[in-house]
Design a protein around this nucleic acid. Structure first.
Length: 446
RNA sequence: GCCCCCAUCGUCCAGCGGCCUAGGACGCCGGCCUUUCACGCCGGUAACACGGGUUCGAAUCCCGUUGGGGGUACCA
């Protein structure tokens, strides 16, 4: 029997990183064993049954590259089937009607306005063998009767979940550990409808610095937000795969295709994992550096386009395209890009007080360096070597190494202490007059 | 409260009875390179929660303790 797994998110309007991780592991499992990956939308709650909430979810999954083989299947469209199952449970006495106060009401057929609860059998042990957790068991005596059908005429999560998995032929339920304690109830439901139990694999939770489950209130959990902050989908997927799993060869940053080849669900570990943005950044930077120029230009387009910190008419795509070689390897995220090149597309260098303080105030001989550079750069050849030699000469006359000597010039020209290689940038992409103008302007400010 | 799960460097992952004076990665701290930053390279910091067993031998198996987490809705 070929494995069938499903990712069954509840539409909340965005894709949570924890959900993305669950989706990824289901996808990895399916892709690694040649199984089928189905997408199911758990929207039994009327408030979540909104197409727009689902659309965004699907868009984010597509962005991550987690393509599904079947679906999306909407639970809300399967209500009639759910109703039949509940009616059957009621008729067989496995469930009962109850009012708003949870008092049992006699009757063996569905009644509008009344909920239905499943009757918890006494003295049973519900056990199952979880791929990641091993043998897990619950005593039904510790569990209570639970609602399977709402008084408003809709199915509850557990019921829809059990019925749909049974109907869809789900062989493996791979999901977050927060759902572990719901398993015995689902098993009972599955037994009641005569369906086989899927094999479970409960993934360790993703937690924050407080070791609490990632929550949308406190933590940055939206995949869309990471996308907007300049993270690459392949980096996101790569990093997420590293939470709860590790490649046998210890090579952490790699293409998703390799992860598919190496992934084994049995290797997933049990302990909760901290979502570490620092490491995500590292993974992202590594993938970013690996992009070829055309690919990089395409991905970075949103950050140098309309929302860029410079007037669109001053942007020079040709200059930027060439500058890419000088900045790409320095970036952590795509969003870092503008501040490495903005001085080229702005009429004046940006004003960065910290940089100014560091190079012009605290740094040595700022005035002398700028004065010297104004002279030396005025009549040297306008190429990288000559510009470098000119600045180096100014530094030597003041007893400064090139690193120190270039600092005030860098800040005068670009506005910042951090940026692309200075001489390459000046000689390659700026007019001599503009460089001299900025140096003079900075000198006047001292 | 009750039920369930978990426990190796600050963090993520490796280790699945001897190869462990515990390995890799991120971070951090040094150094080199050097036109800043970054990259790269070199080096360093730092962990088997605790207590009992089992065994010739335990980070690895068992029990307990402690700690953490999850669940306990007519949310999913």
């Amino acid at each position: 029997m070929t494995p069938r797994v499903r990712f069954a998110p509840s539409p909340t309007g965005f894709l949570h990183v924890g959900s993305a991780r669950t989706a990824l592991f289901n996808w990895l499992y399916a892709r690694s064993v040649g199984g089928t990956y189905v997408l199911r939308i758990e929207d039994t709650d009327a408030e979540r049954n909104r197409r727009d909430l689902t659309d965004n979810l699907l868009a984010e999954l597509e962005w991550l590259g987690l393509d599904w083989d079947e679906g999306p299947v909407f639970q809300s469209e399967r209500q009639e089937r759910h109703r039949q199952v509940v009616a059957d449970l009621l008729e067989r006495g496995l469930a009962y009607l109850c009012d708003a106060e949870n008092r049992e009401v006699s009757g063996s057929t569905l009644v509008d306005g009344l909920a239905v609860r499943f009757r918890m059998p006494a003295g049973q042990t519900m056990a199952f063998d979880d791929i990641v957790r091993g043998e897990v068991s619950f005593a039904t005596d510790d569990l209570e009767d639970f609602v399977v059908w709402r008084s408003n005429g809709s199915p509850m999560f557990l019921l829809a979940n059990a019925v749909d998995d049974a109907d869809m032929g789900t062989t493996h339920a791979i999901r977050g550990e927060d759902l572990l304690s719901g398993v015995p109830k689902v098993l009972l439901l599955l037994d009641a409808i005569g369906a086989p139990h899927p094999t479970y694999a409960h993934l360790p939770l993703l937690v924050n610095e407080q070791r609490k489950k990632l929550s949308k209130r406190r933590d940055d959990v939206s995949i869309g937000d990471y996308r907007e902050r300049g993270y690459l989908p392949e980096a996101m997927v790569n990093y997420l795969a590293l939470l709860g799993w590790g490649p046998p060869d210890e090579v952490e940053v790699r293409p998703v295709s390799e992860i598919v080849d190496l992934f084994r669900i049995e290797d997933v570990n049990k302990a909760a994992a901290f979502f570490d943005v620092k490491k995500l950044e590292f993974v992202n930077a590594t993938h970013l550096r690996g992009l070829d120029r055309a690919d990089f230009l395409q991905r970075v387009a949103p950050w140098v386009g309309e929302n860029a910190p410079w007037p669109a008419e001053r942007f020079d795509a040709g200059v930027f395209s060439t500058m890419v070689d000088l900045v790409q390897e320095k970036l952590r995220t795509l969003a870092d890009t503008p501040r490495f090149v903005d001085f080229l597309f702005l009429s004046d260098p940006v004003d960065d007080p910290e940089s100014w303080e560091k190079a012009m105030v605290k740094g040595p001989a700022a005035a002398e360096i700028l004065d010297g550079a104004a002279v030396a750069l005025a009549d040297c050849s306008w190429d990288v070597d000559s510009v470098l030699a000119a600045v180096a000469g100014v530094g030597e006359s003041l007893g400064l190494k090139l690193g120190k000597a270039q600092a005030p010039i860098r800040v005068a020209v670009t506005g910042r202490t951090v940026g692309p290689p200075l001489f390459e940038t000046m000689a390659g992409f700026m007019e001599r007059d503009e460089v001299l103008r900025r140096i003079a302007q900075a000198r006047a400010r001292l």
